[in-house]
Each structure stands twice: as C-alpha cells, then as structure tokens.
C-alpha cells in the first residue's frame, strides 16, 4: 500500500515536470543552426535526396558506426548468455507440433518478396524514407516467418557470420578510405565514389554502398538474436 502511494506521488511529480516542459515549448517557425546548414548543403554537397540519410550516414557517420557497434555487442551478449551449456543438455524440449498448411505455404510465397522489399528499402535509403536499419529489420522479419512456419528450421550460421563480419569490416574500410583520400576530417566521406546524377539510384557516392552494408549487418544480427532466443 505504502509502495503504491509512493509510486503515485512520484508519478504526480513527473507529470508536473512534464507539464512545465510542455508549457515552455515554443513552436518553431523556421529551421535554425545546424539543421539549416544540413538542409541547405545536403543536396549540393552530398547529392542525397533524403536529408535524414545524409545526416545519419555522412554528417554523423561516426555515430552510426557506434550504433552498429552497440547493436553488434547486444547481439553478442544475447548469444553468450543464451548459449547452450552442457548441464542444460538433459532438458529435452517437448516435441513440437508442425505449423499449419496455410502458414507453411504462405511462408514459401512471402519470404522472397519480404527479403526483396528489405533490399529495396536499404538500396533506396538515399532517395526515399528508409535505410539500412529499417531494411535489415524487414529482412529479419522474413527469417522470423521461416522460424514460425518450420519448427525444425535452422539458419546457416557460417553464412550469416561471414556476411556480418564482411559488411562490418567493409563499413570501416570505406570510412578509412575517406581518411586516406581527403585528409583527416573526412572519415566516412561519401565522395570517395562519384556523386552521379541527383535523384538517381546510383548517386550520392558511397551512401547506397554503406547503407547496403548496414542493412546486411543489421539483418543478420537481428536474425541471430531471434535464433538465439528461439533455442530455449
């Protein structure tokens, strides 16, 4: 009882705090500071249609590299914590029922389309809403569908590890290439490849390449998280 009261008091304080914050919000009428700089320079400097992509991949590219690393560490943590130990071996999983005919047939039909949609999202990341993280999540959802439809489905760990390692390594290599070609301030510069024609699929320099690598990496990482969680 006293705990509930304490929680309620705390929440009331929090609500007051949020109200103060809310009542002091002034509505913006124009961009300011760094956002204005990105909006004015993004298209001509980097050749991207999608300003958010130019921020995520190039202007704040180091943050995205860190973000991919955090995702990698989390996936590794899940794998380490959930790996099967020797003493767990005698715990036999109850025999599972096969999934229904509708789900199996639907999965066969939908999986290639979902994977293709994921690839479409990350390849068009510099032109339309989307990008590597979203596309990777869509690809991982296709793997989840495979797990749902077939109780004995196993992912190909060797292939997944190779894709994940190579995409991570190439991401860093592209970043270092910017350092080598343009000097110390140009880590992850996308202009190591020609910018191309604005608005075309093969434009914006290295951004489609980087986002494809991020998409593959995120897709395989999320798929291996799903795989590890499904084991137990």
């Amino acid at each position: 009882m006293i705990k509930k009261l304490f929680a309620a008091v705390l929440l009331v304080f929090m609500a007051v705090m949020f109200y103060q914050l809310y009542s002091n919000i002034t509505e913006k009428s124009e961009l300011s500071g760094v956002a204005r700089g990105y909006a004015e320079r993004g298209a001509s400097e980097l050749g991207t249609q999608n300003i958010v992509t130019s921020i995520v991949v190039t202007y704040r590219g180091l943050d995205t590299l860190g973000e991919v690393s955090v995702l990698f560490i989390a996936a590794t943590g899940v794998a380490v914590l959930l790996r099967r130990r020797k003493e767990d071996e005698e715990y036999a999983a109850p025999s599972k029922r096969q999934s229904s005919e509708i789900l199996q047939t639907g999965t066969k039909l939908l999986t290639p389309i979902i994977v293709m949609f994921g690839v479409y999202i990350f390849i068009n990341g510099h032109l339309s809403p989307g990008g590597g993280f979203q596309g990777g999540a869509v690809i991982a959802s296709a793997v989840l569908l495979l797990f749902l439809s077939d109780v004995n489905y196993k992912i190909n760990h060797g292939l997944f590890n190779i894709i994940e390692s190579f995409s991570g390594a190439f991401y860093v290599l592209i970043g270092i290439l910017g350092l080598l070609l343009f000097g110390a301030n140009n880590f992850l510069d996308n202009r190591i490849l020609p910018l191309g024609e604005f608005g075309m699929l093969l434009s914006a320099g290295a951004i489609p390449v980087i986002y494809s690598l991020v998409g593959l990496k995120v897709g395989t990482e999320l798929a291996s998280i799903i795989d590890n969680m499904k084991k137990d």
Binding site: V52, D63, L71, A74, A75, A137
Partner: peptide, 27 residues
C-alpha cells in the same frame, strides 16, 4: 530546402534511438 522542410536532426536522432532501444530490449 531550408524554408520548406521540418527539422531533420531529431529524426536522425530518433532513428538511432529506436535501433539502440531494440538492442537493449533484446538484451
């Protein structure tokens, strides 16, 4: 562009926050 679009910086930040959130929740 600067007169016609919404602020892209919070959108980029939230994109990062969502991915990190998924990873932390899984962990």
């Amino acid at each position: 562009a600067a007169e016609m679009i919404v602020d892209p910086v919070p959108q980029a930040l939230v994109l990062t926050a969502i991915v990190i959130g998924v990873a932390v929740n899984a962990l």
